[in-house]
Design a binder for these strands. Structure first.
Lengths: 148, 148
DNA sequence: CCATTTGCATAGACAGTGAATATAAGTCTG
DNA sequence: CAGACTTATATTCACTGTCTATGCAAATGG
């Protein structure tokens, strides 16, 4: 297969898998809220505007979202000493715990599917692990870069 | 790596990739609407209740969703001759075209990311293609099966 | 036939989101 | 250092998507 054809085939397979996986995510919380908690877990406290840009929503939407998360005890608001306009949003222990549980549920769902693969197929995926992790890193960088 | 550890590592990588990909999907339409159109493109005309179960929403939600899609010209309602209660929802040519465009956009996004991989990484993904397609098939079957 | 079941539509309520705007704090300019 | 501008967040209003509860018409089974 040509390199170009390979990209198209891999892209199609990953797109199909990703769209199907997206439909199975738990709906006890909006996708944006879950993504925001995951971002906080990954990068530490952030300001509202920063989070809004990272998740691709407007600032008012993020303000409302943070208010709900705060009422649920998943995040805390903390003022910034050097700039009193700023609200720093911090993950609480309950929030961190929620992120871990949700992530584990997603990983478990994939593990169940992997259980239906042949031994050779699992081996092939193990060999492709560095590539998958690299793709994830490239995606993260691409998103962060294009928003700033 | 043990087979068990392998599943966990692959699951984590795929989950991470899927959740990141989900956030980049176009937002000109709800996830459910896009998924419904994709289901219609994949399996042909379906009745409302059937679509609601397939997408994991209630029947009233699917009724409302189909109404919007119909107003946009992406689907058509057709009565069923043998059972006059039934509404068969059919994809129009415009709807099929939208599904193709959206899918292509998603595939393109992955292709761009794949362009940042090394040659060896691409080779590994090509070798894992059958496994990825098998996973997609397992997921589809799992969802269809658990809802009926 | 009449009661029940099935398939879809409607009504009412609520969460999430965006656009426009308000408020308050910081920063710059002359 | 006073006033204008910019930045960070909050508020308001409207709209969409979803749910639960319910209504209605067609099919089905004694």
């Amino acid at each position: 297969m040509s390199r170009r054809g390979a990209s198209a085939a891999i892209g199609a397979a990953l797109y199909g898998l990703a769209t199907r996986a997206a439909r199975r995510l738990p709906r006890d919380m909006s996708l944006t809220s879950a993504a925001t908690l995951a971002t906080l877990a990954r990068t530490g406290p952030r300001r509202i505007t920063d989070l809004a840009a990272a998740e691709g929503v407007t600032q008012p939407a993020m303000t409302a979202l943070v208010r709900v998360l705060e009422e649920s005890g998943l995040v805390e608001r903390r003022g910034d000493a050097s700039d009193k306009r700023v609200t720093r949003v911090c993950l609480t222990e309950a929030g961190a715990s929620y992120v871990r549980m949700r992530r584990q549920a997603g990983v478990d769902a994939f593990e169940r599917l992997i259980g239906g693969l042949t031994h050779d197929e699992v081996d092939a995926l193990v060999a492709a692990l560095p590539a998958l992790k690299h793709l994830e890193e490239l995606e993260t960088r691409d998103r962060d870069g294009s928003k700033r």
